[in-house]
């Protein structure tokens, strides 16, 4: 009755941890090896071997360049993402609990969602200039939709029995919002937030490829134009690493927030 749930896969022993590390790193190691073999065999200037890229990476990012280009990019990414979360969840709660308002806004929302955010960049440059504001806006304009639409779905799907329970016991207002609506919509909200995170990374790069003089997207393009190929690769690798770290962080948060959901699903399946 109790074992069916999460702790089954506890912290584990050292051997267990080693095995997990091996499983996680084996394929990347193989791929790097293949890369190495291919690139040194071909001797192509455009595909430098991993050690050259690694050297360029160290030189490039273990310097003040990291603070000048990478950190501001990451800050804009997180800022835009946070803004999109606040906006998407806030508006989603409002629209999800007001059926009329939702029916009214749904076609417009679907249209706005269908507009590919990169085409907004020229427009946003006109409206907001080429500074940080524009870049954050680009990220928000792409991220907000999956969060918003998923939140609306989640709020609509609140269990009527649970809603009646709240009413019967006089649970209302912000406490109702926090303990009932937000929590029961949290699986959908998290699904939307996960989609939004990968969109945010893409848009961070794209927003920096236009009319920009700093940032990761700008750096990669600049190196490409000046044929600094290993440095260009080093930029791509850093972007990949940022993506991996963010998704690991996201998974940690998700595991915490949705522990009940995972357990509930496991318990339902077990019966």
């Amino acid at each position: 009755m109790t074992a069916a749930t999460a702790p089954a896969r506890g912290p584990g022993t050292a051997a267990h941890a080693a095995r997990r590390a091996f499983r996680a790193l084996a394929l990347p190691a193989v791929l790097i090896g293949v890369w190495w073999a291919v690139s040194s065999a071909s001797g192509s200037y455009l595909v430098p071997p991993p050690d050259v890229i690694a050297a360029a990476f160290a030189e490039l990012w273990f310097s003040e360049r990291f603070f000048a280009d990478a950190l501001p990019s990451i800050a804009r990414l997180l800022g835009g993402y946070a803004l999109a979360l606040a906006l998407g969840i806030g508006a989603g709660l409002a629209l999800g609990s007001a059926p009329r308002l939702r029916a009214l806004t749904e076609p417009v929302l679907e249209f706005l969602r269908a507009v590919p955010p990169p085409v907004l960049v020229p427009l946003l440059i006109l409206l907001a200039g080429v500074g940080n504001g524009m870049k954050v806006l680009v990220i928000v304009s792409g991220c907000v939709w999956p969060i918003l639409l998923n939140t609306i779905e989640g709020v609509r799907a609140v269990d009527p029995v649970l809603a009646d329970t709240c009413r019967a016991f006089g649970v209302r207002g912000t406490r109702r919002l926090r303990t009932l609506v937000l929590r029961s919509a949290s699986p959908q909200i998290m699904a939307g937030a996960r989609q939004a995170l990968s969109i945010a990374i893409i848009l961070m790069v794209i927003s920096e490829m236009f009319a920009s003089s700093s940032g990761l997207g700008f750096t990669v393009v600049q190196f490409q134009r000046s044929f600094a190929v290993p440095e260009m690769w080093a930029g791509i690798v850093l972007l990949g690493l940022i993506g991996v770290v963010l998704s690991l962080l996201f998974r940690r948060v998700e595991r915490r927030v949705l522990a009940w959901h995972t357990g509930l699903r496991a318990a339902t399946r077990g019966e």
Partner: peptide, 15 residues
């Protein structure tokens, strides 16, 4: 006044 609903699985907060 307090109510106990039939669907216990849906009247308790799983979180």
């Amino acid at each position: 006044l307090a109510v106990v609903f039939q669907e216990y699985g849906r009247s308790l907060f799983p979180w």
